[in-house]
Design a protein around this nucleic acid. Sequence first.
DNA 1: TATATATTTAGATAATTATCTAAATACCTA
DNA 2: TAGGTATTTAGATAATTATCTAAATATATA
Lengths: 90, 90
Amino acid sequence: MNEAFKALSDPSRRKILHLLKKEDLTAGEIAGHFNMTKPSISHHLNLLRQANLVESEKKGQHIIYSLNTSVFEDVVTWFMDFLTKDEEGK
Amino acid sequence: MNEAFKALSDPSRRKILHLLKKEDLTAGEIAGHFNMTKPSISHHLNLLRQANLVESEKKGQHIIYSLNTSVFEDVVTWFMDFLTKDEEGK
DNA sequence: TATATATTTAGATAATTATCTAAATACCTA
DNA sequence: TAGGTATTTAGATAATTATCTAAATATATA
């Protein structure tokens, strides 16, 4: 889960996740939302993919990115641990 | 919340949070759990404090650190957003 | 007040990460 | 198959971050 935390630490990558929550997008469409070159976006997408926060599928000339919620669930579980109080003496 | 995400991206800092979940600890006690100098731990504690993930209180010669769960709640809310499906057409 | 302990601050260095340009790969279509 | 579009890979550089040593600050106590 370390990769997920690192992937989430960058604002651009969190913005990508927000975009993908609305709809699946190609790499180029994602890049269109940023003032950043396509190789830079490609790098961020790669980190998100390694962290299993997004999935990609090749469709012809395009690569379509989409959210992968399974790791989100793991991370929420990690956080919930801090919000549940330990019962004393148990 | 950007600072919280950045603070959480480091494994040592997440380990500190886990230690503090069990009990409040002084800076020195926290440092005792790591193979790292005290100034390095102090730096990590500072980032956690800036992110409002921990609080500190001076008690005599010691400084006691404790968890601050309010920002955890914000971050969980952020994650939950990705796990709730949008209803189509609404 | 002098000394010891706990912690932080300052400043330097090393490691990691983000970003760019240029080139490579893959697919589509005329 | 030649040319165009979409995307990634490679390699360089700049920015950020982690870590260290040495020094400073604050408190306790003999």
